[in-house]
Design a binder for these strands. Sequence first.
DNA 1: TTCCGGATCA
DNA 2: TGATCAGGAA
Length: 276
Amino acid sequence: MTLLVEQERNDALLAWYRVERRSFPWRGESDPYKVLVSEVMLQQTQASRVIPFYERFTARFPSAADLASADLKDVLALWTGLGYNSRALRLRETARIVTRDGWPTTPVGLVELPGIGPYTAAAVASFAFGEQVATVDTNLRRVLSRWHGESLSGPTLHSVAADDLGHPAADWNQAMMDLGATRCLPRNPDCTRCPVAQWCVGPDSYRPPTPQGRFEGSARQLRGAVVRSLVGGEATGREIAGHTGFPVKDVERALADLSDEGLVSDDGTGTYRIAE
DNA sequence: TTCCGGATCA
DNA sequence: TGATCAGGAA
């Protein structure tokens, strides 16, 4: 791929983005705390669903210091419905660290924080600190795989993303995610309305990730119900089983796991509550 | 590789 | 019903 082609493709992408970009409350945000809140909420969660959670959460906890000193129960009360509750616990841990030590501004520094992996580190670095790095998420993986005609993953994917990166990176990243979410769809890509179709091999090379197991009847469903119950107030395993309808044995198992993970605490008498 | 939530949409 | 989702950690 010649440099000229990459330039023309990125020019067309960014021109499209200026007109067709989606509007979100975190778009254009440069406060690293608010960027981080949005990015953690967006992990494995559709952007449209995050909007009301982001608005409520940032209103209640406007700064990292506010979140750092919050009770986990209050945090989870605003998280319930988003899913993956450990994200909230790790987000508060990171808030405590940056309140004490300040913010790393590079991906290498950010990725050391709890709950921040390669994607979120790149996102905060790009959107809050202006670092010229690619935010390699599921959208970029799909779009880049189709551009180049091979299913990209791992180090190869990141290398290709760095090569193709346009500038400013914050705009390019968000343009790529918008393209993936509104044109370059997993199942029904709308190539006729794609601004960069003439520089793209085509949609066939993309391979979807391995699908998740059933949610109904899963441990995840049970765990979610247990946390939701304890956000409402402390309770015994039997009580939780009673009003969630899950077997006591399974509830006890979930409580033990959630305790190990730091989401739940046990006073030793069989009564459980959200950890502090 | 597998597990971690749960709402949305085809 | 199933697929998808601005991923991360063990």
